[in-house]
C-alpha cells in the first residue's frame, strides 16, 4: 500500500491521509482521469466501488469533496480518493470510459448534488422525478419537514394539507 501511495504522491501530487487504518488521498480535479487510469492499469484496482460527495456549505473553498472508493480484489486493498471542488455548480471528469460502474454513480451525483460529469453519455436524474427542481442532498436544500399535528394546531394544518377531490 505504501508504494502505491508514494507513487500517487509523486505522479499526481496526491496528499495521503490515514484514519484508523483506512487510507485516503486528496487529489486535485485535473489529475482525476489520469490517476484513475493509473490505479486501474498499473496498481490493479479493478473496481470503482462507491462514488459520492460531501457538501461543506457554507464554506465555498472547497464546497464539495467528491469521494471515490476503489477496491482491488486481487490485492485486497481499499483506497479512498477525495477530490475537492470549488463553487456552487462544479463539474468533474466522467470516469465511465475507465470504469463502467461510474455511469449510475455519476447520475446520482448530478441528481443529489448538482455536480455535472463532463462527457457522461446519459446525464439525467435517477432517483428524483424528472421534473424535480433542486438537488436534495445539498446542505442548503431544506428537509421539508411537515409540522406535526397536535390538538392545538389541528385545524390549521388540516386546512393546508392536500386532500383528493374524490
Amino acid at each position: 500500500m505504501k508504494s502505491i501511495l508514494s507513487a500517487l504522491q509523486k505522479n499526481f501530487d496526491a496528499q495521503p491521509q490515514e484514519y484508523q487504518g483506512l487510507h485516503s488521498v486528496i487529489l486535485e480535479a485535473e489529475h482525476l482521469m489520469a490517476c484513475s487510469i493509473a490505479l486501474k492499469e498499473t496498481h490493479g484496482f479493478e473496481m470503482l466501488n462507491g462514488l459520492s460527495a460531501v457538501d461543506y456549505w457554507p464554506e465555498t473553498e472547497p464546497r464539495f469533496h467528491v469521494v471515490y472508493q476503489f477496491l482491488s480484489i486481487t490485492k485486497n486493498l481499499r483506497l479512498e480518493v477525495r477530490v475537492p471542488l470549488v463553487g456552487n455548480t462544479p463539474s468533474i471528469d466522467s470516469l465511465t470510459e475507465v470504469y463502467a460502474s461510474a455511469n449510475w454513480f455519476e447520475r446520482e451525483l448530478w441528481d443529489m448534488f448538482g455536480i455535472k460529469a463532463r462527457n457522461h453519455p446519459d446525464l439525467r436524474r435517477i432517483l428524483m422525478p424528472a421534473d424535480w427542481e433542486g438537488h436534495p442532498l445539498r446542505k442548503d436544500y431544506p428537509l421539508d419537514y411537515e409540522e406535526v399535528q397536535f390538538s392545538f394546531n389541528f385545524e390549521e394544518i388540516d386546512q393546508r394539507k392536500p386532500r383528493p377531490s374524490e
Binding site: 484514519y19 466501488n49 460531501v54 469521494v67 481499499r78
Partner: peptide, 16 residues
C-alpha cells in the same frame, strides 16, 4: 470519515 463494508446477502454493503 470512515468507510465500513460488510457482506449483505446481496453483495457489499458499505457505509461512508
Amino acid at each position: 470519515s470512515v468507510y465500513m463494508p460488510v457482506e449483505s446477502p446481496r453483495g457489499e454493503l458499505g457505509v461512508l
